[in-house]
Amino acid sequence: MLFPYVQGFPPKDTCYLYSHMNRILTLVATEARIELRERYAISGIVLYVLSSAFIVFSIWRQLPPKEWGLTFWVIFLFCSLMAVLKSFGRESEGRYFYYYTLYHPLELFVAKVVYNLILLLFIFLVLWFVLYVMAGNHIIRMGWFLTTGIMACTGLSFLLTLITSIAIKTQQNASLTSVMALPLMIPLLINILRLTAYASGTTPDENPWNEMMLLSSIISLVIGMSLWLFPYLWRS
């Protein structure tokens, strides 16, 4: 009963799932096409990352490894908030109504999440590159940091998409998104920071699997809850 729309699973013909995937991919592609058509959108994100990184580094000048990780995630958080908010705020009421009649909420949600995930991964890589150039690389275990980054992007894109979809239904969506999302990000962030500390070799803790397990369980909680709640919240 949790997902009334997907009650028919497993589908008798595999075409069913395939068509879902297709529709979602079409949505993502549309989304991306719109974003890329407006040239300033993507360059705006890159510029945002650059300028915030520049401000932070002109204050710090030299970053020890521990502060490197903290700064990275602080900049990343605010950039991702901005980016997700922008991708939602762009759309008009009319378009939502149009989507609502065409697609199932879950399709819409997954499409949004996938699009935001790509956006966040892009920000992650850009930011990593910028910090690499400006402050040097303090990451010893690249694989761990990359995994952490991918997991963080996944968790945050689900969380931010859900929260933004709540916030756009209110009068003051921009400030409410950050007010509602930031405290909820903290459990994710604590684990991400610990894993980053491990990746940069600043903690004596040599068993990161506990953190990884906790992070993945929190992320799966976020995913499960948001998939359950989005269709309910989307109705209006």
Binding site: L162, I163, I166, K169, T170, M180, L184, P187, L214, S217, I218, L221, V222, M225, S226, L229, Y232, L233, R235, S236
Partner: peptide, 19 residues
């Protein structure tokens, strides 16, 4: 709308509070 958004956010937040 208010009640629906409250219920959704409340459940989401409480589950995230557990860890």
């Amino acid at each position: 709308q208010k009640a629906r958004l409250t219920a959704g956010y409340n459940m989401f937040a409480f589950v995230l509070l557990i860890p």
